[in-house]
Computed example of a mutant assay.
Amino acid sequence: MYITITSQKLGGNYSQGSADFVDYLEKENQGLDPEDLSAGKVGREYFFNQYGNQISAEEVSREIDANTAKLEKTEPRFYSITVSPSKYELNRLQDSSKDLKKYTRELMKDYVASFNREINGRPVNIDDIKYFAKIEHQRSFKGTDKQVRENQPFASTIIQLKSDIQKVGRGELPGNITKMEREIHKLEKAAPHQQDGKRIVQGMPKQGNQSHIHIIVSRKDASNRFSLSPGSKYKASQVELNGKTVKRGFDRDKFFGKAEKTFDKSFGYQRNFVETYTARKEFIKNPKNYFSALMKLPTNEKAVAMKMLKESGMPLMPSIPTNKAQLALKVFNRLRRGVDIAIKSSSIGI
């Protein structure tokens, strides 16, 4: 489970309207008949919130953009929360759309509970926020994905060969076009990562269940009077404002931890050590403790953990010599330095 919270920004200022972002979230509905859903067909997804379904993109933009009282250009109008379950978590679901909608509504209760704020003398509750969510079922390979990165040397050579073929055709370069085309064919097949017999490239749709959740949540509360920012650098503190003591802060660690527990409880999911937000954070902050905890897992759980790490792109050794802990730790630390594994769950900003 990876959760990111980002504030939408264009250049030096934050987006003054939500239309572009909402339109982006409508991309999977392009070309689909609006009547598909009412006819019982699978495919079209609508926005929803805590109490409503089939909310139009126009209503989402209108509601979000009208809820920005007294916000400056230097302040975000809304935040985007993206929730990306792993394939193991998705396999636990019976119906991706239905189950993820149910989970979203529980997740947003965890979200409001993570604010150290009060409204009219009481804690923030789910009715105090204005949000809209959308389930998406497709993802494409990005340039940062392991498959694209490891295929890149082949891609670069293929691009160069195609360029040379054009030059040969124009008489600018000597060469055998047929031989070059055969070489391109060999490189296409030799690339280490393939999907449906084709070399994986940036922008190619990913196979399998890729369902995930996009949430757009207003910076202002539902009454348009109070600011609720998950981007606060404070977890929990108090400040004097106009002679009154005001609570402030948002505890991201609490939110991410509760989000996992809510999923596990909702769907009876048995979470492996390496899937936890706490473990991923420990990996970055204290790899020695992380490594020690990993080695102490029961055999079956450790085997699953190693499989998950390998699938995530971590180039772990085929077998770690547990009788040579110091050597293993050095190798692990070296791998850690060479692999770009971010704690996506703790990111906030652009």
Rank of each mutant, 00 (worst) to 15 (best):
N176M: 03
K186Q: 11
A113T: 03
Q202L: 04
G175C: 10
P153V: 11
Q194N: 12
V168R: 09
T157W: 01
K162A: 03
Q207G: 11
R149I: 15
T178Y: 06
I165R: 05
K186N: 07
L161Q: 05
D127L: 08
M204R: 05
E181D: 10
H137R: 14
R117N: 06
S114H: 05
E181G: 05
D145R: 07
Q160H: 10
I126V: 14
D145Q: 10
E106M: 09
P153F: 14
Q195C: 07
V201L: 10
N125Y: 01
I159T: 13
I159K: 15
E106Q: 15
Q202I: 09
Q138W: 04
K179P: 00
D110N: 14
E188W: 00
R182M: 14
A191E: 05
V112K: 04
D128F: 01
M204V: 06
P192Y: 11
K146V: 10
K206L: 06
K130M: 10
H193L: 03
K109E: 08
F141E: 06
K206D: 08
A113Q: 09
I158G: 00
R182Q: 15
Q194F: 14
A133V: 09
K167E: 14
I177M: 08
T144P: 02
G208L: 14
D196P: 03
L161M: 10
V201R: 15
G143V: 08
E183S: 13
A113C: 06
K130I: 10
F154W: 12
H212K: 03
H137M: 11
P174R: 07
F154H: 13
P174I: 08
K206S: 05
S156W: 01
I129K: 00
N125S: 10
G203I: 01
P153E: 11
V112S: 02
K162N: 13
L161E: 03
F154N: 01
R170Y: 15
V201C: 13
A133P: 07
T144Q: 13
T178E: 14
Q166W: 05
I200A: 05
D164E: 13
N125M: 06
T157Q: 12
K189F: 00
G197V: 04
K167L: 13
I200S: 03
G197Y: 04
G208K: 09
G208H: 13
F115N: 01
D128E: 02
T178H: 11
Q207I: 11
E118D: 10
K162R: 12
I129M: 00
V148M: 11
N125I: 15
D145I: 07
E106V: 10
S140R: 13
G171P: 07
E181H: 06
N116V: 01
Q166R: 13
F141L: 07
E106P: 00
G175H: 05
N151T: 04
I200E: 02
E150V: 03
E188N: 07
S140A: 15
Q194C: 15
D110Y: 03
K134H: 05
M180G: 07
D164P: 04
H137W: 06
G171N: 08
Q202T: 14
P192F: 09
T178K: 13
F132C: 09
H212P: 01
K198M: 10
E172N: 09
K162V: 02
I158Y: 01
E118K: 12
S163D: 12
K167Q: 11
I126L: 08
M204Q: 12
R182N: 14
K146G: 00
K142P: 03
A113S: 12
